[in-house]
Amino acid sequence: MEVRTIKVFTTVDNINLHTQVVDMSMTYGQQFGPTYLDGADVTKIKPHNSHEGKTFYVLPNDDTLRVEAFEYYHTTDPSFLGRYMSALNHTKKWKYPQVNGLTSIKWADNNCYLATALLTLQQIELKFNPPALQDAYYRARAGEAANFCALILAYCNKTVGELGDVRETMSYLFQHANLDSCKRVLNVVCKTCGQQQTTLKGVEAVMYMGTLSYEQFKKGVQIPCTCGKQATKYLVQQESPFVMMSAPPAQYELKHGTFTCASEYTGNYQCGHYKHITSKETLYCIDGALLTKSSEYKGPITDVFYKENSYTTTIK
């Protein structure tokens, strides 16, 4: 009895394709271990004539594949690729409408935090270190965002349907971005203890939790000093293409032309909904596939993004 075979390709990165001759009487799992086709788990399936010449994702289970996976995804987590594939199996079914010149995501599976993050990423200057993220990001900007969303979920250790947080998501993504040249110098002034300067680099240099107003941050924000008295913390120097200011959701007025974009969060910790506000020729609110415009805006804002380049204080 002759062994019926077909020729397929296996890959971990969709760049390096490895030619395989597979036995049609055995499952993919018996031949390769966990195997995925377009995100779908085909591990328990036997090869079919229609699979001839198709590319299958496999887990990096030998040295060659491990090197290829690390170079593309910059992670050695053995569960990463499987999590990416199972997320992709959902995100490829989502709709990605162009809204006001940006790629958004039609609401499904509690994905409003991903839509808000995706919209924000198209408006701030950011370059990702893992080629996987950078490639998928370019495709997302062009309207094909399924891979990018699935990668975000995998890097953030999230599953489809789980509630997510924009600030946490951005923080994970910033860790995989090139923020080497970003720098922030802060000064804390206390009447009792004097003053202390701190220099922050990388992710810490672009994120701040405690106030939404970048102007206020430049002037000074009140913080408790270690001595128990009130101290003032203010920005001395900022070198970065953008800054992200966050605070627990509270009524906040966004003035046209003073910011790049913002995240609105309605609801409580267990259950809520994100919308995205962007400042173009007027203010726009993007909620999944829905767009509304207004000249002014007041609502429960939790993150505001500002364009920056270089700032030095005039406070002496």
Rank of each mutant, 00 (worst) to 15 (best):
I6C: 09
R184S: 14
K275Q: 06
M170S: 04
M24P: 14
T64Q: 15
V304K: 00
V304P: 02
K95T: 15
K92L: 12
H18E: 09
Q270H: 11
L114D: 04
T55C: 08
T75E: 08
E308K: 07
Y172R: 11
M245F: 15
I6E: 04
Y84E: 00
Y306W: 03
D303S: 00
G220M: 01
C149Y: 05
F56I: 09
K229I: 08
G228K: 03
C112M: 01
F174D: 01
G161F: 03
T312S: 11
L179F: 10
V304L: 04
T199D: 05
S25W: 11
T55P: 08
S104R: 02
G53S: 13
T258Q: 12
V21H: 13
E239Y: 09
T55Y: 07
P34W: 08
N100A: 15
F174A: 03
H256M: 10
L291W: 14
D13L: 05
I105L: 06
T314M: 14
P241M: 06
S240C: 03
K218H: 03
F32D: 06
V12T: 07
N61R: 11
K280Q: 15
T91P: 03
D180L: 06
W94V: 01
P224E: 13
T169Q: 05
E253N: 11
P78M: 09
V206G: 03
T159L: 09
G257K: 06
A150P: 03
E52L: 11
Q20N: 15
Y274M: 06
T103P: 04
G194L: 02
E68Q: 08
Q222S: 13
F148N: 02
L133S: 04
G288I: 00
G228Q: 05
T211W: 01
T169W: 02
G299V: 06
K95R: 11
Q134D: 08
E308T: 13
G257Q: 06
K255R: 12
Y113K: 01
A154F: 01
V42T: 10
L121M: 09
G164P: 00
E296S: 11
S181I: 07
F148V: 04
F128H: 04
N147A: 11
S104F: 04
L235F: 00
V185T: 10
K127L: 07
K54V: 11
L200S: 10
V22C: 10
N110V: 02
L81E: 07
P78H: 09
P60V: 07
R4P: 14
T260Q: 07
D165W: 01
V3L: 14
G101E: 04
F128P: 05
N147M: 10
L163R: 15
E215K: 07
S263F: 02
G33W: 02
V188M: 10
V67M: 14
L291Q: 11
V8M: 15
A150H: 04
G267F: 07
F56H: 04
T314S: 10
H273W: 01
A136M: 09
Q216G: 08
H176C: 07
Q270S: 11
N178P: 04
E281G: 08
P224I: 13
L102T: 00
T43K: 10
K95P: 01
L102R: 01
Q134I: 11
G164T: 05
C149H: 03
L254V: 04
V22T: 10
S104V: 04
Y297L: 05
H48E: 14
G272P: 00
T120G: 05
K95V: 11
T226R: 15
E144R: 08
Y252I: 15
L173W: 05
L290R: 12
Y72Q: 09
T260C: 15
M26C: 14
R4H: 13
N157T: 02
W94G: 02
D180H: 09
R167K: 08
Y28A: 05
P224F: 11
A140D: 02
G53W: 10
Q20W: 08
M209P: 01
A40G: 13
T11S: 10
K201A: 08
G299I: 01
D13T: 08
L37P: 04
S86D: 13
F242P: 01
I15C: 10
I6Y: 10
A145W: 08
I6P: 07
N187P: 00
T199M: 12
E296D: 15
H51E: 10
H176I: 06
Q222N: 11
R83M: 09
R4Q: 15
Y138K: 14
G101A: 05
K183E: 07
A177P: 01
R167T: 04
G228I: 01
V189H: 09
E162V: 03
S246P: 00
Q175N: 14
T169L: 09
L114V: 08
G299L: 00
L133P: 02
K7H: 12
Q30A: 12
F56L: 11
S246A: 03
N110T: 02
Y311A: 07
A117R: 04
M24S: 13
Q222A: 08
